[in-house]
């Protein structure tokens, strides 16, 4: 078991290093300093800034140093777009807002989708199932952006208007996070995120459950007279755990960066938003640091997925 985990980690390390390499190379295909300074600065300014960040050193040196930074999580370069703050500080500031949106979204959407998938599969072919499937397909055909824009309009703008006081903020992020401020500022984006992913997730879980439902032990349970809920939650759910877990873990990385649209539109100062702004500003140190962190998080979730898989499915461990 531990051998397996070790193998997965060992396998992923070169992959991560490779990704870092590719990213760093890609970011240097055009001169980052000129990109930031624009055309009007002098060569002297260019060289000064380049030297300050160590971009004039050989690439191999830069690579090794940067890997060091990644491992120790110390991105001490000063941000170009936000002078006065290091990339590290920006990173630290941005983590909580991102988490505060993505974690609840993942939790809620998984729970709801699994339940809906269960119900749908249990009533397979009958009205509840058909209605749910139709809703899912309809929901999947609308762009994420549309949900956000309309969600902001109806969910905040109009709703606040009708009710008289502010239920949800149209955008923004509170200075201090309390359950109340979380509700005001974060609930709406989370709700939108859940609604958007529900279409896909529900169909997937439904397919998994249907497959389970055709198994003989379910027919036996029914014949024994077990109640519907018992069959659904005790029998089917337990045995469908493997694909469910896989799916949840696979969607994790999307939540790391996938909320980028939500952050942009709702003005939530999370990691995605910070990255996009950095790109617009050509803020090289921040871009490099953030992409490295994102990639790292992604690799870690991959490893976690493999480990969880091994925990749940003994066949994997033994292979």
């Amino acid at each position: 078991m531990w051998v397996y985990i070790l193998r997965r980690i060992l396998y992923n390390i070169p992959v991560y290093l490779g990704i870092l390499l590719l990213v760093m190379l890609a970011l240097r295909t055009k001169d980052p300093v000129w990109a930031f300074l624009g055309k009007r600065k002098s060569v002297a300014d260019h060289d000064a800034l380049e030297h300050k960040l160590g971009l004039d050193r050989a690439f191999a040196v830069q690579y090794v140093l940067f890997v060091g930074d990644v491992v120790t999580l110390s991105f001490d370069q000063e941000s170009w777009g936000q002078p006065g703050k290091t990339a590290n500080e920006l990173l630290g500031d941005a983590i909580v807002p991102s988490l505060v949106i993505t974690a609840p979204a993942l939790l809620l959407s998984s729970l709801i989708s699994i339940c809906v998938g269960l119900i749908s599969s249990f009533y397979r072919g009958r009205t509840p199932d058909r209605v749910l499937v139709i809703l899912a397909v309809l929901g999947m055909s609308i762009s994420f952006l549309v949900y956000i824009i309309l969600g902001q309009y109806f969910g905040a703008f109009i709703l606040n208007d009708k009710v008289g006081h502010r239920i949800f903020a149209v955008e923004g992020y509170p200075d201090s996070l309390t359950p109340f401020t979380w509700w005001t500022y974060c609930m709406l984006p989370v709700a939108i995120s859940v609604i958007v992913t529900m279409g896909y997730d529900t169909r997937f879980y439904r397919a998994v459950m249907v497959e389970e439902g055709t198994r003989d032990y379910i027919t036996t349970a029914r014949a024994k007279g077990a109640s519907k809920s018992k069959i659904m939650f005790v029998h089917m759910l337990k045995n469908a755990m493997i694909p469910i877990i896989t799916r949840v873990m696979i969607t994790l990385p999307f939540l790391i960066g996938g909320s980028i649209l939500l952050e942009m539109y709702f003005g939530i100062p999370g990691m995605g938003r910070r990255l996009i702004l950095a790109i617009r500003d050509n803020d090289f140190p921040v871009i490099q640091a953030f992409t490295a962190v994102f990639a790292g998080l992604y690799i870690i979730t991959n490893i976690l997925t493999d480990v969880l898989y091994a925990l749940v499915d003994p066949r994997v461990r033994l292979s």
Partner: peptide, 16 residues
Amino acid sequence: SIPYLVLLSVLVYMFN
């Protein structure tokens, strides 16, 4: 293994 977001960010930056 390359997260979609990272790829897009890098591409946006590169092609800007």
